[in-house]
Write a protein that binds this DNA or RNA. Structure first.
Length: 515
RNA sequence: GCGCCUGUAGCUCAGCUGGAUAGAGCAACGGACUUCUAAUCCGUAGGUCGGCAGUUCGAAUCUGCCCGGGCGCACCA
């Protein structure tokens, strides 16, 4: 980890010079390249405790750091209170050559639940977003050292399922579809088949998700939860702990005692369990599997559900679950357009474009990238016409093209590809240097994307990396250059290719060798 | 009414525990292919970061109020 190494140098200097144990050294990437390769604002932070001007602190720390590290090619330049760090070519090569051991994190056993679509209809683009986000987050968390289990909760029991089955039967019997029933071509299709509709729908979900490159370790069935007796056990526990009461013929959970805005019904007056009740039981079951963290990915249309689920978990399992041990990632919704016209998406009316149709129309890689490239906090307007026709609007090709270009050159090179670089052939060209600095940032980008659960940051980084590569490609001939330079550039190509490939792989996107 | 998300270039969006002159792609305009893949590169133009206050050495980023957009406020799932 490049920043941990450099940040460590700075904290050491702060410690020896000022006697302060400074943990919070954070390196940033300066917007202005004249400000060096990295910079830190540590002098501003120390100004208050030391009662000293930031500029003076920056000068003192820089002097000390230069004494110890200038020989290694790392220079520290104080400027207006900032400390700017510049790496020499030699230092850059050395840092790139350093074997990577592990990320500075505490490994956790994580359960990540996502998609969990009702098997009452085909998956749509919204499910696609949760699927892509979930799989990318899982890859990132695993990459930095967590032990991740991906889980899909199969909602195969309850009212919706009953309505769904009733709708199929109605079509089969040529009778009208019930009021809350489902419509659409897929209902007719299922009605004309002898397969169990729920099983068929679930099988379809599995096929589509697999095609999208999304894999689950556990498919947890709601009906198996009912069969296990866990719901009873949980209700008993709630009652024993005096967390419930009867009113209006229903059994209520005192979720307000744990931060919810109102109490919630567990057992309805007619004796049926609420969806909430079963869902808590499911989460309760997950807590029994001893994960360090439970993560759910939900659509924004369910965000209001977060406080009550957290309250329930706190009530049943304790305040462990008040914080990050239970985490819900809310993804804003996706709206589908075609040529600027909204495409309605309603399972009930059957007017919809399915996820698998979108994948077919614009391709799996483009679909994944489009859905991963934006922060989960922004809602997405997905225009099919734009995504399909104007490939330049989808930067996934830009990244893949970089990879393919490299593969092509390496195919043509007869040389063995060196794994390390040196400055024997003279100083680096600016665009060589920019590219290498960008590669040096890779681990850092992975770590921040993973710890913030923000895969789109990795996507953004890969675009920048590709940009740096394309510029390098344009400015620096490789195969026709003088042998020493050629050797170095082949090594640069190879490192770039590996980095692109790893990044794309984490996002579940292919890295083609030709395009 | 209350809660969550959101408002950045004509459009779609980045902007990393608050940092130095706010970025990219597309669209517009002008250049670069007899030379490793032009799905590329280089340049020009384009901004009161929704508005007003506040916090601070420093605010697109934090706080408050206001305006606009999305979503949610069930003994539905």
């Amino acid at each position: 980890m490049i920043d941990s190494i450099l940040a460590e140098y700075i904290s050491e200097a702060v410690h020896t010079h000022f006697g302060l144990a400074e943990e919070g050294v954070f390196l940033e990437i300066p917007g202005n390249p004249e400000h060096g390769d990295f910079s830190t604002n540590i002098a501003f932070k120390l100004a208050k405790p030391l009662k000293k001007a930031p500029a003076a602190i920056a000068i003192e720390i820089s002097e000390l750091l230069n004494q110890t590290h200038l020989n290694d090619g790392i220079s520290f330049t104080p400027l207006n209170g900032f400390i700017n760090l510049t790496l020499s070519d030699r230092a850059l090569f050395a840092l790139l050559a350093q074997p990577f051991s592990s990320y500075p994190i505490q490994s956790r056993k994580v359960n990540l639940e996502f998609v969990s679509a009702n098997p009452t209809g085909p998956l749509h683009i919204g499910h696609g977003r949760w699927a892509v986000m979930g799989s990318a987050i899982a890859s990132l968390l695993s990459e930095v050292g967590h032990d991740v289990t991906c889980e899909f909760y199969i909602n195969d029991a309850g009212n919706q399922i009953d309505n769904f089955r009733a709708s199929i039967s109605a079509v089969k019997n040529n009778s009208p579809i019930p009021e809350n029933g489902y419509h659409g071509a897929y209902i007719k299709e299922l009605a004309s088949s002898d397969l169990d509709p729920v099983a068929a729908m679930l099988a379809d979900h599995k096929t589509v998700l697999a095609a999208l490159g999304v894999a689950f370790d556990i498919w947890y069935s709601k009906s198996s939860l009912h069969a296990s007796g866990l719901v009873k056990e949980m209700i008993q526990k709630i009652e024993e702990n005096n967390l419930s009461y009867k009113a209006d013929g229903a059994l209520w959970f005192k979720t307000t005692e744990f931060g919810d805005s109102k109490d919630r019904v567990l057992i309805k007056a007619d004796g049926a369990l609420t969806y909430f009740c079963v869902d808590i039981a499911y989460h309760f079951e997950k807590t029994k599997r001893e994960y360090d963290q439970l993560i759910d990915i939900w659509g924004a249309d369910h965000h209001g559900y977060v406080p009550r689920m957290r309250a329930a978990l706190r009530g049943i399992c304790g305040d462990d679950y008040a914080g990050d041990r239970f985490k819900v990632i809310i993804g804003q919704l996706v709206s589908l357009f075609r040529n600027g016209e909204p495409v309605r998406m309603s399972k009930r009316t059957g007017e919809m474009i399915t996820l698998s149709e979108v994948m077919e129309e614009i391709g799996v890689d483009a679909t994944r990238f489009f859905l991963i490239q934006k922060s989960h906090d922004t809602s997405i307007d997905f225009d099919l016409a734009v995504a399909a026709s104007q490939t330049s609007e989808n930067p996934v090709y830009y990244i893949q093209y970089a990879h393919a270009r490299i593969a092509s050159i390496l195919r043509k090179a007869d040389d063995t590809i060196p794994s390390t670089m040196d400055d024997a052939a003279g100083p680096l060209e600016p665009s060589e240097r920019d590219l290498l600095i960008m590669i040096l940032r890779y681990r850092r980008e992975i770590l921040t994307s993973a710890t913030n659960y923000l895969p789109h940051q990795l996507a953004t980084y890969l675009i920048q990396l590709s940009k740096a590569f394309h510029a390098f490609y344009h400015n620096c001939p490789i195969l026709n250059s003088e042998p020493g330079i050629k050797k170095r550039r082949l090594a640069i190509l190879s490192t770039t290719q590996k980095t692109l490939k790893m990044g794309l792989h984490l996002l579940g996107i292919s890295a083609p060798d030709s395009m």
